[in-house]
Design a binder for these strands. Structure first.
Lengths: 223, 223
DNA sequence: GCCGCTATTCGACCAAAGTCGAATACTGGC
DNA sequence: GCCAGTATTCGACTTTGGTCGAATAGCGGC
């Protein structure tokens, strides 16, 4: 059986465009589509070792780099090409910092996308020319953010699910019902993930998770 | 005793510029300065009924519209002129939506600032020309955000302090020590503010508070 | 196969969070 | 001054959250 290529984007038209690009870069590939974060992970469970994952940062259920970080944590071997409508250099470098193999702006031409996919399949990383143009810092990727990402990456799949439910403000009881386990189990997961994240209560865990979820472009402080 | 004019900005040079403007608009005014959110509220306690408050959105301790909302909640009668380095129309209208009487970009000339101060002292609201230029929507100010702001505005001063400490991930015990009250009191405040915010546990309260703290300009979804 | 490692699960126990009722104090209107 | 409404405070009780120790299951290496 051929290894699959996963396309995760909530916009059908854009998925079609990506399919064209994939067909050129990986002739005969089995293409699997997802339009939400939930269906993406369902697809990943069904195809645990895809050749490539094309991931839109702005999908229903996706907040900031959460989906990327979670995918990287659970399927570390899958090369991920991040797609986004935002094109600032900051977000490109942060995507790579979070483990993406390439960043493709939605405004890119098919040819450019194909070039990116080929580079990634060859084991390279890839960025559009605009990412390095303009000089200035190559984005040190905020130390706190790097740290937080490293911690998040050590979470197990279940712990990830629990954390995301924590971040929705759910009670342990509700999480237990959702996951069909006992409340004791949820508590154990919460304890474990809090230790990994280096925090001492659920609120701090949620706060840490939130920091990765929001792309506050900011960059103010001019006077 | 003359009523005071408060200037809250962390940049000394810019405070000087604002002082010049205030001196022109309110001759002989007693000017009180603050460079952090903390010192701003100390100044408000010392001068509970200032004639005017000039507030920079980007100060140490200030996250998003929090300082503005908190000041409005505790000192509803004080007209507030918001200062910011950001100049997008969105932020201007949101500032007014959160109760500011005027919005002044940091790039504005002294004359413009004076005009704004005079308008506010006369009871008017004031926006730079660029706020209405460019057509498009007059900013419906996200329904959720309006709602959250309305709820936050009903909090008492103590409840506000408690909420901000909740948002730092502190335990009730730590908050109690900080405020020199018993843990039971903190719990009572937490219960009260949760009811006002329409949430059922501290994590949800923190989540709601966070939503107002981050100005993620976003506005994506182009394909 | 056997062993060590980790993920997942759980129950029992203690600590923290949240509810309820109530007392005190302060404010603004009459 | 008096009253109504609200802010602030607290103790007692209940619910939820978090720790500890432990059992089971799966996975990769030797």
């Amino acid at each position: 059986m051929k290894r699959a290529v996963l396309i995760a984007d909530d916009h059908p038209l854009f998925r079609d465009a990506l399919k064209l690009a994939v067909a050129q870069a990986v002739p005969g590939a089995q293409i699997v589509e997802a339009d939400t974060v939930h269906s993406l992970f369902a697809a990943l469970d069904a195809h645990p070792d895809p050749e490539l994952l094309l991931l839109d940062l702005n999908m229903p259920g996706a907040h900031g780099f959460n989906a990327l970080v979670q995918a990287r944590a659970n399927f570390p071997t899958v090369p991920i090409v991040v797609i986004s409508a935002r094109e600032d250099r900051s977000i490109m470098h942060r995507a790579l910092g979070h483990g993406a193999a390439a960043f493709v702006p939605k405004s890119a031409s098919i040819d450019l996308i194909v070039a990116a996919l080929r580079a990634v399949l060859g084991g390279d990383t890839w960025l559009p020319a605009s990412a390095s143009a303009g000089g200035l810092d190559p984005s040190p990727l905020d130390q706190q953010e790097l740290d937080a990402t490293a911690r998040l990456a050590t979470l197990t799949p279940q712990q990830f699910r629990v954390l995301s439910m924590l971040s929705a403000g759910l009670l342990n009881k509700q999480i237990a019902a959702e996951l069909n386990v006992s409340e004791a189990t949820v508590k154990a997961h919460v304890s474990a993930l809090m230790q990994k994240l280096g925090v001492s209560n659920r609120t701090q865990a949620v706060l840490l998770a939130q920091r990765l979820s929001l792309d506050q472009g900011s960059g103010d402080s001019t006077s």
